[in-house]
Design a protein around this nucleic acid. Sequence first.
RNA 1: GCUGAUGUGGCGCAGCCGGUAGCGCAACUGAUUCGUAAUCAGUAGGUCAGGGGUUCAAAUCCCCUCAUCAGCUCCA
Length: 649
Amino acid sequence: MINVELKGGVVKEFENGVTPAEIAKSIGMGLYKSVCAARVDNEVKDLRTPLDRDCKLELLTFDDPDGKHAFWHSASHVLAQAVKRLYPNAKCAIGPAIENGFYYDFDVEKPFSNEDLQKIKAEMKKIVKSGLEIERFELPADEAVAKLTEMNEPYKVELASEHSGKGENISFYKQGEFTDLCAGPHLMSVAPIKAVELTNCTGAYWRGDADKAQLCRVYGIAFPKASMLEEYLKMMEEARKRDHNKIGRELGFFTTVDYIGQGLPILLPKGARVIQLLQRFVEDTEQKLGWLLTKTPFMAKSDLYKISGHWDHYKDGMFILGDPDAEDEGELYALRPMTCPFQYQAYLNEQRSYRDLPLRYNETSTLFRNEASGEMHGLIRVRQFTISEGHLMCTPEQLEDEFKSCVELATYMLKTLGLYEDVSYRFSQWDPNDREKYIGTQEEWDEVQGMMGKILDHLEIPYKIGIGEAAFYGPKLDIQIKNVFGKEDTLITIQIDPMIAEKFGMEYVDRDGVKKHPFIIHRTSIGCYERTLALLIEKYAGAFPLWLAPTQVKLLAVADRHLDYVYDVKKKLEAEGMRVEVDGRSEKIGYKIRQAQLEKVPYMFIIGDKDIEAGTVSVRHRKEGDLGAMKLEEFVAMAKEEIDTKQIK
RNA sequence: GCUGAUGUGGCGCAGCCGGUAGCGCAACUGAUUCGUAAUCAGUAGGUCAGGGGUUCAAAUCCCCUCAUCAGCUCCA
């Protein structure tokens, strides 16, 4: 007998070898039917795992993230089963659960059309209705490979073969006629997968390698109840309404033009205004913190990039001016994809001593990157962008404090913008198995990654590790954020570079009179203005905080005879430094209010006879509605407070 | 770059199996001067992303290019 501690600390006795599924059943059929997976001593296990010692057991339902995971993973198997029934020649690759749902990759002659997906969905529903039990079994690796070979599943054979020789058994899950190589965990049957939607079908490379076969990836989502699916789909629709690429265009923040080219957006007055406000804020803040502004050229001869290593490691990503196949490469110029090697020249301008360090250079820097044509996305991925760039040269002793101050600056920016709660952290490391991509030796990387890891731990930053995500010259702390589609991008990056100073001969004379190479921190404080603008548009659905709003107050006259007073108010507000617009059209007040609301202007003044008589303005807030009449000075004081403290409302 | 989808007046859409473009909103003009999310009437605007081809005839069929979207790969 073993003692199993259940929810709420209740300890029950069970026979040795009991499974979580059996325990769930003993508690009640309701629980048994809804349980998806088990957490045994904080480890997620399949419900069929025999328990052979005292332990703590949590029975995970769909409400638990790991429960959801198992649920979706089983749904992906149902998807594969349906595909195999309808398209017996399809070869199965992998089909995991993801953050929101699941996908399965298939090798098929022709990618699935929307009609195909409908058919597949219908077949999935049939499978679910049949309520097939899901069984688990294990085979030794060589037998597993033999079985999968017989099943004519080459991708599965490849996966199983990697495990042969390890001496471990390989697990399979089987439901009806469908068997899949899989580590699990899975549901006990397909029955609970009541509501399914196949959301998308796209291409995806086998093992994420662009040189390998391209497969057909079907994305889906599933829930135990139809109402949950409806709710989810509605939520996604709402999220898409915030898509910066849609409302950013509608609200006049930016546009694109076919004959200018991909990834080259036109920032319209509103978008340009927000970026200007952000930029002034960033530059002023950085200056106060001891950063020295530089302005360096947008292009340089190839020689510069050869020293920095960009020519070898980043050439494909650069816009090169001239014929790259020309004999004399010295005459080639390239637009800068990064600011680093330019700003280093400022450092190199004088002989440096340890007394000069840390030396902090910042720049509002426009960069050009020849991104592959399929990569562009609204303002988030573009070919020309402007970044709050900075490079900081310091001694090893200063590294931790300086790194910390860079993180603090980024945090301050994120908090001010209201994005702090929305980001996650990634410690981006090199991939030792992909040496081509990096400079430096194993020892150098181990050392600098060790240092960075220690600093991050001291800062108590909750990061995940990204292997192969480092820059070619050093590891990064990437501050990640998701767009409305759930796609993650880097908003801010702070990097430690122990290698490039040497390449450029950047030195300082230390206390002991010896010349040494400084550490360089590459960092951005607010990221790229275009991308940050995009995420702010999505965050606020276009309704910017007052301090960033392109137009802060819209003045609406009730009737034309009030316009003189209105323009007088405008003048006074502008004298206070506020951004004001007048809607002088001969429309009804309701119409003009509606327009201003749709434009998401923070404050509207409704001005009519009553206001002129009383010498007031009637204030309306876009969210709070009618705030009543007040003296202009009263409003200005209130608005200034809101602006100065950068309130978000 | 790859897979798939899309590209019709400023925006959102119609235009089925080919016979030379419609609607709503916006814009403009006129009337209305009306206090917190849409006043009424009228006018103008597109050759259908661009180029080539098939055809007596193409927005509608075919090819190429460009751009947009989702995903992959890549990346701030």
